[in-house]
Design a protein around this nucleic acid. Structure first.
Lengths: 115, 115
DNA sequence: CGGGATCCCTTACGATACTG
DNA sequence: CAGTATCGTAAGGGATCCCG
């Protein structure tokens, strides 16, 4: 690994970073194909506009596949692309590290409060 | 992995995300202990203030160890803590995935431009 | 149902000047 | 040398309204 390592990680962070993308990716990873409305129900805090925007970015990055069914009422389904699924291992590792990090911070706080 | 997976990843992203932290972590990972001025020279684009802020946050998160030598002129050395080193595997995987992602985007662009 | 458009706020980031 | 303080800008995120 050379001095340009950072560029790879910057690209990765742009693809999966932000407030909502990890959550969306995990849902599609764990639960498979979902409609727009289902995603909204699974993420009650997100607004319609933000969900649309995040899905568009994930689609543009090739991580999520969007399928539109020309029906009345309209139906749109989202799923992970093959490329998106290649993130599974890294997402799970980040998740695991994050949990140990939370534990570490609690212990660290305890240590600093009690010597 | 349950529905709360996202929390781990949010914690991880807060610890290593942002414009500068990955670069700082990679430098300390690859080159070992560095003084403040050395870090500045290795990252010419960052301002003093930002470097200080990012290092403080990394230190607060327990990823980076800061050692002050009471000398004139002052000397301060930064290095990865044991906990910080536990990020090595994940950082390298993110970096590798990021590079393949860049290649994917180029191919995807080519495909969309040429059928 | 699944959006798009607009406006607003907060946070991240950055430039500059000053200091023990 | 290794910071701190202040101020300004850019980007991310959010509320609301409208639409085929």
């Amino acid at each position: 690994m050379d001095d340009l390592s950072k560029y790879g990680i910057v690209s990765a962070l742009q693809a999966i970073g932000g407030k909502w993308k990890p959550h969306i990716l995990f849902i599609l990873l764990e639960k498979g194909t979902k409609r727009f409305g289902e995603l909204r129900r699974l993420m009650p805090e997100i607004t319609q506009g933000m969900l649309t925007q995040q899905l568009r970015e994930l689609e543009k990055d090739g991580l999520v596949t969007r399928v539109v069914y020309q029906e009345i009422p309209p139906r749109v389904e989202y799923s992970l692309s093959t490329h998106g699924k290649s993130l599974e291992h890294i997402l799970r590792e980040m998740c695991a590290w994050g949990f140990t990090h939370e534990e570490f911070k609690k212990m660290d706080k305890y240590a600093s409060e009690n010597g």
